[in-house]
Amino acid sequence: MYGQKVMDHFANPRNVGEVEDASGVGQVGNKKCGDVMRISIKVEDGVITDARFKTFGCGAAVATSSMATEMVIGRTLEEASAITNTAVAEALDGLPPEKAHCSNLAEEAIKAAIEDYYEKNGISVKSGRKGCCGKCRDIGGKGP
């Protein structure tokens, strides 16, 4: 069902845990939907120097979290903010169609962590972040 790269990131996830004294933390998803992703980042001089994740979710959710942390480390906040769900999925050589929403979650988690950093530093930003994949309304949740 999953490709080799997804299975590699699921079986050997990179950067599991929490960054100590994190500059920003973003938690997205909904436990009711079975997906919660938390990414914490360390920011120095506008560059993400460390990123860690904790994820409750399926194989794709774990793999996209792992890949997302790898993709943001060493990037400027602007570069990291521009990472899209498609880019995360592509970096994993693709996801099964029914798992595409898991990559949305990874993009959301990165953006949430960056937004948290901005807020903590008194920088006002407007983002189009939804907070989760947006499908929970279908199962009776409150939605984003």
Partner: peptide
């Protein structure tokens, strides 16, 4: 914890089982 992740790790350990998680039921 989430069922599909559990099943994948069990499969890697040589055990085939199932779960009622959304990810394995094909719905949310």
């Amino acid at each position: 914890i989430e069922g599909e992740s559990l099943l994948l790790l069990l499969d890697m350990a040589g055990i085939e089982a199932s779960s009622g998680s959304a990810c394995t039921s094909g719905s949310l």
